[in-house]
Design a protein around this nucleic acid. Structure first.
Lengths: 125, 125
DNA sequence: ATAAACCTTGGAGTCGACTTCAAGGCAAGT
DNA sequence: ACTTGCCTTGAAGTCGACTCCAAGGTTTAT
């Protein structure tokens, strides 16, 4: 799979895909005879993972750290688990913050609902 | 309330508080005779709001837009409600993304749990 | 065989959100 | 009066995460 297709499939710019790879947030993608990136299923799995993590606000640095451990093999299983656990904590916290804000805005919009109606009422009387 | 206290209370740097005000993400704070910022309850409410929103990933630009409408008075009630509704949408989406990532990592850590145990098992036998 | 549409790399540029700096004013304690 | 600590402003600097650019190679269609 070439970079443009991957870009379309994940809705991530080709530049970003190259950037992630350059930085070491995903493993190096193998190239075809022309020197073009040719993504295999494993590469796509890494992109899925990276995309999820980035969407949840996890930094590139963390991804690099995780991949670095991963490349070092089985002896880093515990370290990787710890790293993920740490992220899980952070994400859970973020989740609650956002939930909190969601509730606040929800309430605020309902408040507005009442006010705007009141305002319309005034206008129509 | 002086800037340092506010900074401590909200755990937001004084620089950031000044930055938000300068940008128009919160209303101008009145000054005492010395020219120092003196935050009143309303100011604190705005900071609470801004902090919540920022934590949920809402941009400074949005806050400026909201405050701009707010300053224009009651005629912008509907516009403000719309703006908040829009944000609510975005935040709900973000919430789901993060929830999704949370589940994924949770699963992954459990997976690791098994593997690490397996690994320990191998070692201890 | 030539153009159009891909791809490559290295490096520079951008953007949002701070953060730091420089130069200086006020204020409370000794 | 002097030091220490907090405050002010405007401007410049930083940082993370892209995003764009230049120069050039490949592939596909005409």
């Amino acid at each position: 799979m070439k970079i443009k297709e991957v870009s379309a499939k994940f809705n991530i710019s080709a530049d970003t895909l190259r950037y992630w790879e350059r930085e070491g947030a995903i493993p190096p993608v193998s190239r075809d005879k022309a020197g073009y990136r040719d993504y295999d299923d494993e590469d796509l799995d890494w992109i899925t993972f990276a995309k999820c993590m980035r969407e949840a606000g996890v930094s590139i640095e963390y991804l690099i750290e995780y991949l670095t451990l991963f490349k070092q093999g089985d002896t880093t299983l515990q370290a990787r688990k710890d790293l993920l656990g740490e992220q899980l904590e952070t994400i859970a916290q973020r989740l609650h913050e956002i939930q909190h804000t969601y509730d606040l805005i929800k309430e605020k919009t309902e408040h507005y609902e009442a006010h705007v109606e009141g305002y319309h009422g005034k206008l129509s009387q």
